[in-house]
Write a protein that binds this DNA or RNA. Sequence first.
DNA 1: CCTACCGATCGGTAGG
DNA 2: CCTACCGATCGGTAGG
Lengths: 219, 219
Amino acid sequence: MKGDRTRAAIVERAVDIASVDGLEGLTIGRLADELRMSKSGVFAHFGSKEELQLATVEAARKRFIDEVFRPALKAERGYPRLVEICRSWLDYVNRDVFPGGCFFAAASFEFDSRSGPVRDAIARMMDDWIGAIEKAVELAQAEGHLDPEIEPAQLSFEINALFFGANFAHKLRQDRTAIERARVAIEHRLESLRIDGAPPATEPVNVRRTTAARPDFID
Amino acid sequence: MKGDRTRAAIVERAVDIASVDGLEGLTIGRLADELRMSKSGVFAHFGSKEELQLATVEAARKRFIDEVFRPALKAERGYPRLVEICRSWLDYVNRDVFPGGCFFAAASFEFDSRSGPVRDAIARMMDDWIGAIEKAVELAQAEGHLDPEIEPAQLSFEINALFFGANFAHKLRQDRTAIERARVAIEHRLESLRIDGAPPATEPVNVRRTTAARPDFID
DNA sequence: CCTACCGATCGGTAGG
DNA sequence: CCTACCGATCGGTAGG
């Protein structure tokens, strides 16, 4: 009982640390310090750093589903739900659900050239998530809301790419137009595939103009 | 002279290590082992780990420009060059110019929630690179090849996002359709903005169908 | 560029 | 859940 609550507290803290400093940057000593526990007290809950990392990925997965995916399922099945999943994702980055931005974007790029159980857990999560977007596309097609010719795997690839692009521009470039740019790109794309008469997205699509360019890319 | 060659060898190795294990995962001890040098021999070239990281980012920048950007400049100014920059980027991931995939995608997501000179160097590089894409868009507009209404910053945002999505799907998901999906998405988008009569891209755009979906995203 | 070393921290263990 | 400890490795230094 109490052990479970302690473990949960450790793992939630681990998720926040890892979203900023990475799953390899996560250390048992730092966790212990921040939670005012002994290192061995933290360690005992997991038995190895790898098990701690796996528990951290799993906790991040649950937080992601609770904060991003489940709320979007309330939207009407078909085109509205597909749009809502995308808006929910963009809102999740804006809301700082993880202090370091999207946990799984960071973890994906950290582990994409490694091997082992941690990489596999991250890849499984991303397969599932992209599969969920694909399923939303298929449902929108089945409802007669979306062009039946578009391949769900292609569209979910594009949507996910724009999510990562938004996270990147928002966090690294501190570009305050990033989220809106991604929303506009996604909703223009979806709108171009929407069947006449299907329920539209609730807000209009608007592009804002900003300034641009740096000349001196080559030294 | 000889010191310069040694330093260059250290830094090239550092780039390869960091593309796989990250700029924080890069250690002086491992570099020394792989290059059969003493730790202090490696260390003396830089004076601190941070300076080593900065030298590593700079070497990666040069390799990126040589392998991705400069070759694409040979293409005819305007629409053809814009397409060629995108193809060059996708080819660069396919060719394994860095063993861990795109160095700057990995570095961007590793440092996007940190502060300091290393983060700033990565952000500057990405600003410059995205600025170079913007400039290619502006040139295509100036040549009368591309819709003058599209905002260069919006289009370069979308293109860069699809690059990251390609790197992600190719490296983490080991999806062999990833590069082609990104190419199709980018070239469809560019084609939709191309002015009638402007020089087209050299190859046709083709979407291949593949299988999809996993059902059980929520446990 | 080397040997030899420093204190701090890493993941992990023993024993309670 | 703790104290007390282990060998290995970290970034960095002294002195040559």
